[in-house]
């Protein structure tokens, strides 16, 4: 464990806290992409199958359960719970996620670490996580302006993988046989997708944390 990875996990947890607060206290999922939340649920449920046999630390196992539970709860609330479900707009949030899931599944089959079923599913989850934010970013583009809490949510989510990039650099230089090309590639793509958002987020928050983010 190193500071970058710890801060990355904390940023990821923060993104869950912000989103759960927004949809439970604000009683609205406006501006939140259910498609992205569904993709995250698929990512965590497929990646953490090893919860039952790969016990690397209590910290890891605990957070795996937390991430599966939170992502499932978010999807449940936005899909089924009133009044949140009435604030979700299927016309706006209509990114064809099958065009994300399909290629990631093929990539997971072809490019993985050990050619076992779990490794293929694991690689699929890594590739899918890299592109899971796309429906959310498309929704924000359509709306032009980003509600305050939503902007903090997306920023925390982008920071999490950005901090993981630093963690991988740190581990590469401090550990002798550390090699994880799959997550390095996917994590770089994932963080790259946020760069445009981060630019507008920084520009808008310079004048004060609660100003809305405007996307062109």
């Amino acid at each position: 464990m190193n500071i970058f990875r710890f801060l990355g996990d904390m940023s990821h947890i923060l993104s869950f806290v912000i989103l759960l607060l927004k949809i439970t206290q604000g009683k609205s999922a406006a501006g939140i992409s259910l498609r992205t939340q569904e993709l995250y649920m698929i990512v965590f449920c497929s990646r953490y199958l090893d919860l039952f046999w790969n016990f690397s630390s209590l910290y890891n196992s605990f957070l795996k359960v937390v991430f599966i539970a939170c992502s499932s709860a978010i999807v449940y609330i936005i899909r089924f719970k009133s009044p949140q479900k009435d604030t979700w707009n299927p016309e706006l949030d209509n990114f064809p996620i099958q065009y994300l899931i399909g290629p990631c599944a093929v990539a997971g089959l072809l490019i993985n670490q050990d050619w076992t079923p779990f490794e293929m599913i694991w690689a699929f989850s890594i590739y899918l996580e890299a592109v899971a934010i796309l429906p959310q970013l498309f929704l924000l583009q359509k709306q032009g302006e980003v509600e305050n809490l939503t902007s903090h949510y997306v920023a925390a989510l982008g920071a999490y993988r950005g901090l993981y990039l630093m963690n991988w650099v740190y581990r590469y230089f401090t550990e002798d046989d550390y090699l994880q090309r799959i997550v390095w590639f996917a994590g770089t793509v994932q963080t790259g997708l946020y760069i445009d958002f981060f630019y507008h987020y920084y520009q808008s928050k310079r004048g004060g944390l609660s100003r809305p983010v405007k996307l062109p």
């Binding site: 690397s56 890891n60 991430f67 490794e119 046989d177 090699l179 994880q180 799959i182």
Partner: peptide
């Protein structure tokens, strides 16, 4: 060799 056995990251 990729250290795939020990997946110690989330």
């Amino acid at each position: 060799k990729e250290r795939s056995r020990l997946k110690d990251e989330l």
